[in-house]
Amino acid sequence: MSSTFQKYGGFSAVSRVVMTFYEMVLDNDLVGHHFDNVDMPRLMDHQTKFVSALMGGPSAMNDERLAFVHRDLAITREEFDEIVLLLTDAMSQHGMEQADIHNVKKSFEEKRALIQKAAV
């Protein structure tokens, strides 16, 4: 079965989405501050693998690790929602179809509990 990941051309396509996504994130006043002192090349690499995994690509994302790296960031519901919006925007800018974007969002939503700080 061909995955969304394969459909759009694998890593090179995903990395373009991720680059656009971070351009927007860094300029965003609600979520940008989380990235103030972050090693961006490394983060983009991780994020590319993460988004690839959400699209059914070959990289695997460990849930425990995902929770661990976000544990001290106190990410709020609004911030998570904003990130979802920006990612959606980046995906449509790169010509992904609505149905596919919806699926990626759905997979991403499943990870919300690991990333967003509970009860904030």
Partner: peptide, 15 residues
């Protein structure tokens, strides 16, 4: 951007 891409290429070739 070039540095970011270089890092990504390294990471993918490792993978």
């Amino acid at each position: 951007r070039m540095r970011e891409l270089e890092q990504m290429i390294d990471s993918y070739s490792n993978m």
